[in-house]
Simulated scan of single mutants.
Amino acid sequence: MRTDEKPDQREGRWSELARPYMTRTRHWLFGGTVAVYAAIVLGVLTTSWLVTLDWQIMLFRPYKQWPDIHAFLDYFVVLGQRGPTAVAVAAWLLWRCWRQRNLHPLLVLGVALLMLNVTVGAAKIGMGRLGPHYATTIGTNEMGLGGDIFPSGHTANAVVTWGVLAYLATTPLRRRILSVVAALGALGVGMTTVYLGTHWVSDVLLGWAAGVLVMLALPWCEPGMAWAEARLMAVFWRLRDRLGGAPRPVPVPASPAGVTAGAGRRAVAEDGVLVREPAVAGGRQARAPEAWPHHPARPHTARSERTPVTPSGSRRPPHADRAPRTAPVTTTVRGRSQGS
């Protein structure tokens, strides 16, 4: 899956989120999932082999065949309940919003849950299928009888709620790993509902497809979420300014173009905010006392005040075979001086 990693420059903050966008692969996956969704619905409406499989597993009564794991699966199925899972994931994403100084994680969760409730809720009410515990006639599809079991809300909710964490992952590798974990966990929650006798197998398969469709459609909502986030953050800063809060961070361009030597060219990142180091006279940067390196202050003297150092004696190193050089002997021959 390709990602678009770009900095978020709102209020000087820089985000490392790799936000997905609709690629050709996503389009193909979306179209294939729609086809699977339609095939499952058609198979149930026409009372195909899928309905026969539903009844076979229901009459097998797995909760009576393996009663030892019943207590554990009663707790495990909570991973698909909308209330507890939404609260847990929202708490984690709220912390991420505070760290990244933006509302994107919470907006993704809110939009995903909104699409899930609208699409899955409409399908449940529209098809009105009864669950295994309320089935009336063996071998029928139990459609249009006022039920709300098709597709499985537990399965679709597990796909979306835990899939949001994969969607918001900051690296492609983490996103793939979390996507697989969320998909398998959601399928496990769905099979648990089949074990407990609250859903048909076809309910679980359709719920899994419904959740995947929501996750694949999320990139289409990114422009709307960016629009909403910009306006919500503007309202937040306006209220904070009125209440006399701390001043908002000033954005600093990453490029040092246009910065003079005396203005301090070095910019450092502190908790995601670009902060330029102050400058002092003469173009030298002012370092904080705790800044690296830790060197004690030393006095400096001007060049004219320093004591001159001159070499004394010969600069040539001594040698054992070399005779020491002596001063030349001067003799006078016929009125002229001649060195010997």
Rank of each mutant, 00 (worst) to 15 (best):
W55H: 08
V89C: 03
G131T: 08
L29H: 07
I125G: 06
A86R: 05
V120T: 13
R82C: 00
L73H: 01
C97S: 15
I40A: 01
L73G: 00
R96L: 11
G126D: 07
V34K: 00
W95M: 12
A112H: 06
G121K: 08
T85R: 01
W28M: 12
K124F: 06
A112V: 03
Q65H: 10
I40T: 04
N117K: 03
P84L: 05
C97F: 06
L113H: 12
L79K: 05
C97V: 10
T46D: 13
A122H: 02
Y63F: 06
Y63N: 09
V108H: 10
A122L: 14
R99W: 07
G110A: 15
K64N: 14
Y63D: 07
L109K: 05
W92Q: 06
T52P: 00
M58H: 13
T47H: 10
L93A: 04
P67Y: 02
V118S: 07
V41M: 10
W92T: 11
W95P: 00
V78A: 12
V120S: 03
A71W: 09
L103S: 07
H104S: 06
W98Q: 12
W49P: 01
H104I: 06
R96W: 12
L59Q: 13
N102T: 04
V111C: 13
L113V: 07
V89F: 00
V36P: 00
V77S: 11
A90I: 03
C97D: 04
W28E: 04
W98R: 14
L107T: 05
D74F: 05
P67N: 08
K124S: 08
D68L: 11
L29M: 15
L53E: 05
G110L: 15
W49C: 00
R82P: 00
T119L: 13
F60A: 14
G43Q: 09
V77E: 02
G32M: 09
M115R: 07
R61Y: 01
P105G: 08
H70P: 01
G126P: 01
V51E: 04
W92K: 07
F72S: 10
W92I: 15
I57W: 04
Q56S: 06
Y75A: 12
L45W: 06
L29P: 02
S48W: 03
A112E: 04
Q81C: 01
G83L: 14
F60I: 03
Q81T: 07
L59T: 12
G83N: 10
Q81N: 14
L94C: 13
P67R: 04
I69C: 08
G128Q: 08
L116S: 02
L107C: 05
T33Q: 03
F76R: 10
T46F: 11
D54Q: 03
L116R: 00
L42Y: 12
K124N: 11
V44W: 02
